[in-house]
């Protein structure tokens, strides 16, 4: 028996909106730790890892570890039927082949049940080792989204370079080139407006903008995005989910051959 009651149902709605175009189907895993997902896009270039910790739920019952295969566009469609202020409860029976999403309006005058068929999904769970990154950039998530959107009007790939001068996002395309440099500015009025760059050594990597733009669909989940770069690893673009966990997008770099 699984029963997870999330007071801030909008978080789950936002999570699905941020991943449904990247990943078609995925197993949601539930254990005492929380509600989680790890999935790759169909071309295995990007990976998303989601964790919503059990403590973040108002009620969290998960009698045994369970993995529920879902088609994400279908799940997103159902969650779209929940109001932004609704409480969402996810319910499933052990060994069952359906999951139920229950939506309660804030004043309890409307209660809706949406039952969705589960599917069997063969998916490999990859081990993601703890790693030291050469550079970690924290910046306003809206600023990062803006940069990715702007650059993708010029080119298909972005070179992200971190030096002691700051972080530079560059692209080039048929019509020309673009460079956007963001310098560290830790002394702003609001901490969420700060750009903070932790650099152990300079790093420069090339990524497909199509994926970066897809990741920025998670912008409504967090004011700050953290971009971790290392020349030997996929970049990690992380959005913390208030008090609950995170959504992390991993993207393999493009390598010059």
């Amino acid at each position: 028996m699984l029963e997870l009651r999330l007071l801030q149902g909008s978080l789950l709605k936002k999570v699905l909106e941020s991943i449904k175009d990247l990943v078609t189907e995925a197993n949601f895993d539930c254990s005492a730790t929380g509600f989680s997902l790890q999935a790759m896009d169909s071309s295995h270039v990007a990976l998303v890892a989601l964790l919503l910790r059990s403590e973040g739920f108002e009620h969290f019952r998960c009698d045994r570890n369970i993995s529920m295969g879902m088609k994400l566009v279908n799940m997103a469609m159902m969650l779209k039927c929940a109001g932004n202020d609704d409480i969402i409860t996810i319910k499933a029976d052990d060994g069952g082949d359906t999951v139920t999403f229950m939506f309660e309006s804030p004043n309890q005058d409307k209660i809706a049940d949406f039952e969705m068929k589960l599917m069997n999904i063969d998916s490999e769970h990859l081990g993601i080792p703890e790693a030291e990154y050469q550079a970690i950039v924290r910046m306003p998530s809206s600023e990062f989204a803006r940069i990715c959107k702007d650059l993708s009007t010029i080119g298909d790939t972005v070179i992200i370079s971190v030096t002691k001068e700051g972080v530079k996002f560059s692209t080039k395309g048929d019509i020309g080139t673009a460079n956007i440099v963001c310098r560290q500015n830790a002394t702003v009025d609001k901490p969420e407006d700060a750009i903070i760059i932790e650099m152990k050594e300079p790093v420069s990597l090339t990524f497909a903008l199509r994926y970066m733009n897809s990741f920025t669909k998670a912008t409504p989940l967090a004011n700050i995005v953290t971009i971790s770069l290392s020349s030997e690893l996929p970049v990690v673009v992380e959005y913390k989910i208030a008090e609950m966990g995170y959504i992390r997008f991993y993207l393999a770099p493009k390598i010059e051959e």
Binding site: M40, S43, H44, V45, A46, L47, E124, H125, L126, G127, I128, P129, T157, T206, A208, E232, L233, P234, Y250, A252, P253, K254, I255, E256, E257
Partner: peptide
């Protein structure tokens, strides 16, 4: 030419 790598080049199955 930039060649796109895959995630599985970096992370291996558990």
């Amino acid at each position: 030419v930039n060649q796109q790598r895959q995630i599985t080049c970096f992370f291996t199955p558990n």
